[in-house]
Structures are given as C-alpha cells and as structure tokens.
Design a protein around this nucleic acid. Structure first.
Lengths: 137, 137
DNA sequence: TATTGTTATACTCTATAACTATA
DNA sequence: TATAGTTATAGAGTATAACAATA
C-alpha cells in the first residue's frame, strides 16, 4: 500500500512544481516566509531547525530574503549573539500574491475533475494533516 | 476549497523531503531515472520537455547521471544530432533501493495513523492520479 | 535554415569545516 | 567552554544567451 502512496506523492511533487509561480521564491523560502507570517518572529537557528536546513543555509536564505526586502534582521534584547528574523510587509505581499496564483491554477485543474474526486480530495486533507504531523516529531 | 488543498500540498512537500533519502539523488534526477526505467530510452530533448527543465539543464543532469554510471548516452542511428539516453542496471538498482527506503519510512508513519485515515488516503489516490494527469496536458 | 545538443556564465540552494563574537 | 551565527569552499541544479554540429 505504501508503494502506491509513494508513487502518488511523486506525482504530487510534479503538480506542485506546476502550480508554483516561477517568481524566484523557492519552496523553502516560501515555507520560511509563511512560518514567519503565521507564527511571528524567530531566531535564525529556530528557522534552520524548523525548515530542516543547516544554520549556514539559513544564514544565506535570510540574507537573500533581506536583500530583497522580504524579511528584516533584528537584534535580541539581552543576547547579542542572537538574530531575530521578521517578515516585512513586502514579504507578506509576495506570499499573498503567490498564494493567490497557486490557488487560481489549482482551481482550474479542480474544475475539470468529477465532483466525486473533489470530494475525495477534501475528505483526505485531515488525514494528510495528521500524517505530516506524525512525520515532524 | 483550493486554498486548503494548496496548504495541504505544501505540507506534503515537507513530508516528501523527509521521506527522501539524502543519497545525492534529487527529485528531478529520480523522476528522470524512473521515466527511463518505466518508458524506455528517450532523446535528451524529450527528457527536458517531460521533466519541464531547459535543454541545458537536462544536458547537465544527464552528464552527472552518466558520470555516476546511472545512465548511458547513445547515438541515434541515422541522425547524428540526437543523443539517446538509457538507464543502466546501476541506475535501476539505485531506484529500487531509494524506493524501498521511502516505502519503509512511509509505512512507519502510516502505522501510527487511525485506520480511517489510511482508508481515506488509499481512496484519494485515483483522484490525485486524474488531477496530476489533467495538470500535464 | 532549422533542429539538437553543448558551452559559457550567473544565480539559488545546500552541505561541511573553520572561524568570530558573545555568553 | 558553549552557543549563535558567519565565512569559506564546493557541488547540484537551474536559467538565458551564444555556439557547434548535423539535417
């Protein structure tokens, strides 16, 4: 059974690539921005752990995002070693535009599916939610 | 509704990254190998179109795969411009090992889910299949 | 001329190892 | 010494533009 699901996940990855606008925002960059928008400011090292990349990789990602004005680097009051990363208004705007675009593309695809398929997809979302939560332990 | 699905797809991408062994085989490289193993030899330009990357990107990917012995470059009989790419036994072996590892990891996660969730995931696969087929038109 | 593929160049994204600054 | 982060270096992966070889 897991074999079929793995194959399905691979096809979903193809779908994901097609849905994603070629706007220079990588999946990890978008995930980082979403996290900051959803959960508020984070230390750089917290972001690295949450996104499962190394600290140097996150240093560079944050540098690129800051260079493009999508995040801001701040100091920690009381611990001079810590860097606090915040999303900017421009970052939120990029997220919103990207989200809208992906939703529009997906809606176009969903329209062409039988209603039963759409119902099955809606029905599975909570299960996938639990599956991905399990995976992040 | 599409909004929830987009969010679900993003979480699935995180899951996919966790399932995937850090064996130096990227998702695109694996997809290319799978295509060759499943559908047989391809021209380099056919692979580029199928995997939705540029021709130079596919030239480089095939070069790396050939360097590692996972594919072979052959000549086309009758058209000297064409490069025919084939998967090697070593390529098939890498695919098989990778697949087994991902299935094992996913099974571990699935075991911890309620049976109803597993049933919902199995039930949605045909719908996802049609959704991704729509997307590749 | 058109097609097939490569080379040149420039980024992003990632990793490990070595380093700096602060605690 | 330990922690937080950066810099150095290397390689994968991607793109566009310019090129070479074949049809």
């Amino acid at each position: 059974m897991a074999g079929e699901i793995v194959a399905g996940l691979d096809r979903l990855f193809q779908l994901l690539r097609r849905l994603t606008p070629a706007d220079g925002i990588s999946l990890t960059a978008a995930s980082t921005l979403r996290r900051l928008a959803r959960d508020g400011d984070h230390r750089l090292s917290e972001l690295a752990v949450a996104e499962r990349v190394t600290q140097p990789a996150m240093t560079q990602l944050v540098s690129r995002l800051a260079r493009d004005g999508l995040v801001r680097r701040g100091a920690h009051p009381g611990d001079g070693r810590v860097v606090i990363v915040s999303v900017t208004d421009a970052g939120r705007a990029v997220l919103a535009r990207r989200h809208d675009e992906r939703v529009a593309r997906l809606e176009e695809l969903l329209e062409r599916l039988p209603p039963a398929d759409r119902a099955a997809i809606v029905a599975v979302l909570p299960a996938f939610d639990r599956l991905t939560t399990e995976g992040s332990e």
